[in-house]
């Protein structure tokens, strides 16, 4: 499963063999709900089938508040999966020196009760 990046939306990729899901790029679409909808569906169905640890990487350079809201909804659902016994690791990536994106990751990690790493690239 892959959605190519555009000027305003990130690349979305599910790598089944590595059990890895990633979002990479910029996220400020006009309609964040319709952009994230297929991402929610594919993520949930992949996790439901998965038996090993699922690594969800978020590597976003810029995002608007509407995308933040969707991202938080997505992580909330992953938290529920985690509480129901699935092994999930969120990895929030930031460019070294990008204090803002690092701080966003640290802030979001406090919103949830599931493994959440903030990692420099």
């Amino acid at each position: 499963m892959k959605i190519e990046a555009t000027e305003e939306t990130p690349e979305f990729l599910i790598n089944e063999s590595e059990s890895k899901i990633s979002l990479k790029g910029r996220a400020f679409p006009e309609n964040a709900i319709s952009f994230f909808n297929p991402i929610f569906k594919s993520t949930y169905s992949f996790i439901e089938k998965s038996t090993s640890v699922v690594r969800f990487e978020i590597d976003l350079e810029y995002f608007n508040s509407a995308s933040t809201k969707q991202l938080i909804n997505l992580i909330s659902s992953l938290e529920t999966f985690h509480q129901n016994g699935k092994n999930i690791l969120i990895v929030w990536k930031y460019d070294k020196g990008d204090d803002l994106i690092k701080a966003k990751g640290q802030e979001f990690s406090t919103f949830f009760d599931l493994p959440f790493k903030v990692e420099a690239i």
Binding site: F28, E30, Y62, N64, S65, A66, G97, D98, D99, L100, I101
Partner: peptide, 20 residues
Amino acid sequence: SKSNSKKMYLVAIEALQNIS
């Protein structure tokens, strides 16, 4: 600085889409 320019860009995204 990198951090400040990111902040300005994020404000610009938010405010422009707000008008829209």
